[in-house]
Write a protein that binds this DNA or RNA. Structure first.
Lengths: 127, 127
DNA sequence: GTCACTGCAAAGGCTTTGCATGTAC
DNA sequence: GTACATGCAAAGCCTTTGCAGTGAC
């Protein structure tokens, strides 16, 4: 047993993030919890997100919407957001780690994380 | 003469962005304008930023702060933000365009822009 | 006068904080 | 009982909107 308490809210949020194909925002999480008949509100969700972030279970991302989105932490991957239909695609085979290494050496800085998002038009919306 | 009206607010904001080493937020812009004895407020600044964005003079970026920052549009470049002292360094010689090309071909998507920010510890803060 | 720019007030959305209540151990 | 999780209300920012006033042409 570790010391992490597993409450219904936390467990359900992790469940929701795990089965979401793209990063979700706080409103979506609240809606999911309520659909599961869990009484909750945004404040609780924000606090759970803080907790999960601190534990390193999730990542916090931005899509230039003026709000944050969250997703289960996974291996290095990035997102493509269609500016027409808002669909989000994962970009996972992008070799950014080589760049990160180069930059670290050249600049003498220590890179702990990075954000990389692509914006454009998806395959469907080009038709 | 083009049809772009050059008001004191707009000219001064462009001046400020031009001489800023890193992206600035709306509060910083308001402060700069007031220091120049220009009466203004946030709403006006937001509207000027919309105008400049639409004209393609500036870019809007996010540093995971829950707000937007703005900078003069320049050639492809990115930012490194020190998580300790908040200093921002430009990362300009990063060959991401190759990756963009690859991804476009592989996924059949059309990439119009991307955001790439690095977070970590700068040279000074490692001492 | 017309049109665009600006200013003020208000509202809306996202996020955080304070405090009280509830729950697990 | 203690420590932590949750809920509600309120507040704090950032940003947008409505409407009136100002100024350039």
């Amino acid at each position: 047993m570790n010391s992490i308490s597993r409450t219904p809210a936390r467990a359900t949020i992790v469940e929701f993030l795990s089965k979401s194909y793209s990063p979700v925002d706080v409103s979506q999480i609240v809606n999911f919890l309520r659909a599961k008949n869990l009484s909750t509100n945004k404040v609780t969700v924000y606090r759970v997100m803080d907790f999960l972030l601190e534990k390193g279970f999730i990542d916090k991302v931005e899509f230039r919407e003026g709000k944050f989105r969250y997703e289960i932490k996974r291996d290095d991957h990035h997102h493509f957001i269609c500016q027409n239909c808002d669909v989000v695609e994962d970009i996972s085979d992008c070799n950014i780690s080589v760049l990160v290494e180069e930059i670290q050496k050249k600049k003498g800085i220590l890179i702990k994380k990075h954000s990389l998002e692509f914006f454009g038009i998806c395959k469907n919306c080009q038709l």
